[in-house]
């Protein structure tokens, strides 16, 4: 479980030097094996990605002539208040996404890692993962019902326990709509984080806890000084994963609020979709998409570098 993609692959212990004289058939084997996958990937991911970057420098409505626009589209990103709102919302979302579902998962993983019958543990981890099995489109519809202002479960529940003062148009109030949708995202992701973190906690060497106990560490200290360092790789992974997913968020917003009211729940992906396919500002949409790709790639690079640098020697 300790190989890192970014690491030199010779660490994996499988290198061609161990092979003796190889036949020609054996030499072309990697190309035969990896070739088809890479070809599809190149045609349907790498090329379109390059195409998007290119389109970002043009003014194009999706039909008719394209005119070179230089950096105009990129300049527009920072002057267009709706796109700025979308970027700001996405940053808020990304920060929350690295905190909320991960903390929920961490708490539950620590609780589940305590002495429990394995069946009970499996039951809870299964239940927590269940939302992740649903399509986000399905989750969006379910929570659209929960949040319905007139007959939704949340307002009905609040009303029935005498808290009708707390009833809200959850998706209609610009100041809370984004957070209402974010809660659904956390709901959908915390189970995934939990399964990763639970496995990691269970892999922490038990003798480390014993040693800590001998030093008189309480549960809290053990958590900070044994558990957290022991699962740092996995923690790093889930944080990076939720952050990257945060910049891809589309389905939930698109279905639950459509970016509204008054564009206040737009995120980058919905802005790209709207500009490209509704407003027919294809060049501008491409520029926003390109910027988003650069943000995520930078984020991932920084995170992986950081993880590499801080990884313990014995990795």
């Amino acid at each position: 479980m300790n190989d890192q993609a970014i690491q030199d692959r010779s660490d994996d212990g499988i290198v061609e030097t161990q092979a003796g004289p190889r036949s020609r058939a054996d030499r072309i084997l990697p190309y035969v094996f990896a070739g088809p996958a890479f070809a599809i990937y190149a045609v349907l991911v790498i090329l379109p990605l390059g195409h998007t970057f290119l389109l970002g420098f043009y003014d194009w409505s999706g039909a008719g002539p394209m005119t070179f626009a230089g950096l105009d589209n990129y300049i527009k990103i920072f002057t267009d208040p709706i796109t700025r709102t979308a970027i700001a919302n996405n940053l808020i979302w990304a920060v929350l996404a690295t905190i909320v579902p991960v903390s929920m998962a961490l708490l539950l993983a620590v609780l589940l890692a305590t002495h429990l019958p394995p069946g009970v543990r499996l039951f809870f981890s299964t239940v927590y993962y269940l939302p992740a099995v649903l399509a986000l489109a399905v989750s969006a519809i379910i929570w659209g019902w929960v949040y319905n202002p007139a007959w939704g479960a949340l307002n009905t529940f609040l009303g029935s326990i005498g808290l009708s003062g707390l009833e809200q148009p959850w998706l209609g109030d610009p100041s809370i709509a984004l957070y209402s949708v974010f809660l659904v995202s956390s709901w959908a992701y915390f189970g995934f984080c939990l399964i990763i973190l639970l496995a990691a906690i269970q892999n922490v060497d038990p003798s480390l806890y014993d040693a800590a106990k001998l030093d008189g560490a309480n549960a809290w200290t053990q958590f900070w000084h044994v558990t957290i360092p022991g699962i740092r790789n996995e923690l790093n992974f889930v944080v990076l994963y939720t952050a990257i997913e945060a910049f891809r968020v589309f389905d939930l917003i698109f279905i639950m609020t459509g970016g509204g009211p008054f564009y206040q729940t737009e995120v980058i992906a919905t802005a790209v979709y709207r500009e490209a396919f509704i407003e027919h500002e294809v060049g501008y949409a491409s520029a926003i998409a390109s910027l988003m790709t650069l943000i995520i790639a930078t984020l991932a690079t920084v995170a992986l570098r950081w993880r590499e640098r801080t990884a313990p020697e014995n990795q």
Partner: peptide, 16 residues
Amino acid sequence: VPSGVLAYSYDDMMAE
């Protein structure tokens, strides 16, 4: 009009 009108979809409106 409904105080939560900004959260109302066409369907919500017709349901009401």
